[in-house]
């Protein structure tokens, strides 16, 4: 099994890792301590005190909330998106591109969806304006609850004691 340094994992996250190493990561069996190093790398970039346990996106993480130790989703700016068993999207802001004019800001008209078939739903952080996810469903569609992790099993798999309030 291959191993990588924390510096290499940081470079992976930053998109600056040498291609040879990336290629090795892709072609070799996975390194078991990746999760641990990845969490350290993410934590060091953040200014909040909550302890990160899983990444939902480049700027959105599940973390153990400082104080009550509940697991919530947090934007990098510190905005709390609610308990991990709920859907963080319900606490986000949304901008729906549901007209041809709104789509004109994204693609030439002939290369954009027809909004009577499909709309874009742009979910962003109400505090810092970071784009957290974009859905492209038909009108009326439910907000997707993308990931509902089984944290108990996950921590067994990575061989680390689970947080108290999973």
């Amino acid at each position: 099994m291959s191993t990588y340094t924390k510096q290499e994992v940081k470079q992976l996250v930053d998109g600056t890792l040498a291609w040879d190493t990336v290629h090795q990561m892709i072609s070799m069996p996975k390194d078991a301590d990746r999760y641990k190093l990845y969490m350290e790398v993410i934590q060091e970039k953040l200014s909040y005190k909550h302890k990160v346990i899983m990444a939902l996106g480049p700027h959105l993480n599940l973390a153990i909330r400082d104080g009550d130790e509940e697991i919530h989703a947090f934007c990098d700016c510190g905005k709390d998106f609610g308990h991990y068993k709920g859907n963080w999207k319900l606490n986000a802001n949304i901008y729906v591109r549901d007209t041809a004019e709104k789509m004109d800001q994204v693609y030439p008209r002939l290369m954009a969806p027809d909004t009577t078939w499909q709309v874009y739903r742009e979910y962003s952080c109400p505090d810092c304006g970071t784009m957290l996810d974009i859905e492209a469903p038909t009108p009326w569609y439910m907000c997707m609850h993308d990931v509902q992790p089984d944290l108990k099993t996950f921590f067994e798999w990575v061989g680390i004691p689970a947080p108290k309030k999973i």
């Binding site: 939902l56 969806p113 874009y120 957290l132």
Partner: peptide, 17 residues
């Protein structure tokens, strides 16, 4: 043409139709 099957991920945009 009128719609696209892919979405983009974690803040990225779907591709053009």
């Amino acid at each position: 043409g009128y719609m696209n099957s892919d979405w983009g991920l974690m803040g990225g945009y779907p591709s053009a139709t």
